[in-house]
Amino acid sequence: MTAPRGDTSRAAGPNRDTLGARMREHSTFYLMVAPFFVLFGLFGLAPIVAAFWIGFTDWDGLNPARFVGLDNYAAIVTDPLFGKAVANTIYIWIGSTVVTVGAAFVLAYLINEYVMWGRSFLRMVFLLPLLAAPAVIAIIMSVLFSTNAGLVNAFLSFVTGDRVTYEWLASTGWIKPIIILMIAWRFLGFHLLLFVAGLQSIPRELYDAARVDGAGGWQVFARVTFPLMLPIIFFSATSSTVGAFQLFDEPFVLTNGSGGTDQAAEVLGTMLYRTAFNDFRFGLASALSWVMFALIAVFTIVNSRLLRVRV
């Protein structure tokens, strides 16, 4: 369909005339919302579309790009480092989602049901790590787990009676749990806040009605509380998923940009960064960014299936 110009539409009939007139009448509206669409088009949409094209080329950002078809995608799926990055990302995604959402839910439930004073204080205090930059949190954690000055080793030394100088950050087995711990620490308060708000929105009468019907404590939780909280749990899990697949700051800073011993902390986000800004393989990196996009979409759908949310 060709876009009708103002004057042609006027000639074409009463309907088009009204559309043109109505658009002119609402010119203020288009002017007001234009900044969003101009900025988003330029800095949001255009790069995403361009990334799709660049993904089929071999390009270093300076010399002319060379069309290579699906080579970049083939190179990605056959690269053992990609497999490792995907595995690490999924490890951290599942670990951080389960730990964060689970701990936040239990804490929110306990705070809502049992805590006697200082509830708003609690909600605030758990939010503190969210205010610190992830890069700074990674620095704090790296000191916490450092070999000679780390509080963790000091605590273990105190408990065991021997001086423990374990190299946590160099170990391939512990680096991912430490990253998960970091994410959980940082985001616990966010999920907690959502869950507390959700729990408080459940009407008390529902619980009373369930009790009158003879339901015990556990049954009330399983039949009333949990089902009503599912949409919020879904929101939590989804935001955790989107965050986990774009994870970058924590592993990057924790390993000083190296990916860790034996690339044990290499995730998709750090692999993308390395491909683009260390190796200057813009085509390959663009393809990788689209692969990440697809993975995020897939796992968001998986989330909604797992939690059986009917939106």
């Binding site: 330029l42 949001g44 255009a46 995403i48 361009a50 774009q246 986000g269 996009f293």
Partner: peptide, 20 residues
């Protein structure tokens, strides 16, 4: 369109964004 932009992960266009 505005609502749809919320769900687009920012990393996807990172390389062309940098070039821009």
């Amino acid at each position: 369109v505005v609502l749809a932009t919320i769900f687009i992960p920012g990393l996807v266009g990172l390389i062309p964004w940098y070039v821009l």
